[in-house]
Write a protein that binds this DNA or RNA. Structure first.
Lengths: 205, 205
DNA sequence: TTCAAAATCAATCATATGATTGATTCATGA
DNA sequence: TCATGAATCAATCATATGATTGATTTTGAA
């Protein structure tokens, strides 16, 4: 018989292990191929043990959504601050996201794939949408701060601009996307479009 | 007994009906919930008739990918033309995509969802990726044309800019996205960032 | 040490799901 | 007309899959 690598783990920790295994499987095979048996096997527990900790597949998906959101939130830089340079904050925001793509690729992948369930799992959709809205709002806030600092164009519309930035960066979270080598070129290009025309009494940085 | 609404249809037409039904179901329930039985039921045919026309689920997914690509290609405006105004061409490109989101929402939805199967269906991934690359290239070409016409910034990098534009617009193809009311504000905001500084002799070196 | 609660497992159930088989119905050219 | 192939269907198979049941092992407080 197989010796369990992690026997008799506390419920909270076991649930975290289950969520992580599910995220990895979603990253590797896609949400459509997610099977409760495969999750249990990756954790190294019996299928009924999985059901003891997470009662149903619906609950598993909800758990994955919530913990993915929490992991993303934990990686965010400090909240937008009118007292700090906007370009520094904007770049820090993008850097945190890029780091997550490099270090925790399963997070963005799960985020993408769980949108598949939007039509049939409203609670999951709510988790994802509220995070997306909050994430976009951070960019909008930074852009507005940058306008006050006269770093960004006065005619910039922060919210559409934030949707554009987050939408463009989100494309790098897809599985089929060609790596991250275009991440900063794309960011730089968008940011350049946001900058105020140089030459006045403006002070960069 | 149920009277069949479409009895004895030719193979090509039947395959087109099957592909369309599959697309609609993917739009409604997500790729993960796609079942061959449901596709057959929506077409109004027996499950074995579906297998007669499309031998396996893998073949069905490939069919959906190819016909979705073809439908998208059919909606594209004329190819980029150095002789025509770049901003007009750029807007026409976005307009065609926006029209597709309004009139054929299942196309973008399928594109999204099938992209997520990249890891396990390489042939499908190839179809989608080649289209994505071609689509992005059209934007890059238009942007380069616009630079030659001195409509867009001389320091614009067409390819990163094209990735940014297509990535931002792609976000509107998601199911959970908040409708299309922000489509043109987002497009306008990005385009504004691409424009050359207005008329006054901005070539101050 | 004891024992109740927590955690785990083997076995199994009920249904879902992709696919097949063989008969049947329709279309069409000779 | 009628023979042939194309298209369709009812019935069924083999396996996958989410979930349950009841027994077993471990933990930790008294």
């Amino acid at each position: 018989m197989i010796t369990h690598s992690q026997p008799y783990v506390r419920k909270d920790e076991r649930r975290a292990m289950i969520a992580q295994a599910a995220r990895e499987l979603i990253l590797e095979n896609g949400y459509a191929a997610l099977r409760t048996r495969d999750v249990a096997a990756r954790v190294g527990i019996n299928i009924s043990t999985l059901h003891f900790h997470v009662p149903s597949k619906t609950a598993l998906v909800a758990l994955v959504a919530e913990t993915t959101r929490d992991s993303f939130l934990a990686m965010l830089p400090p909240a937008p601050d009118p007292a700090r340079p906007a370009r520094v904050q904007l770049r820090a925001e993008a850097q945190a996201y890029r780091d997550s793509l490099r270090d925790r690729p399963e997070l963005a992948a799960c985020f993408m794939q769980l949108t598949q369930t939007s039509g049939i799992e409203p609670n999951v959709a709510a988790v994802l949408e509220s995070f997306t809205r909050g994430w976009c709002q951070r960019y909008a806030d930074i852009l507005a701060i940058g306008q006050a600092q006269e770093v960004f164009r006065a005619d910039l519309s922060p919210f559409p601009a934030a949707i554009a930035m987050t939408g463009a960066l989100t494309a790098f979270g897809h599985r089929g996307s060609n790596g991250l080598e275009m991440f900063w070129p794309v960011f730089d290009e968008i940011e350049r479009g946001f900058l105020a025309a140089p030459g006045k009494e403006e002070s960069v940085r």
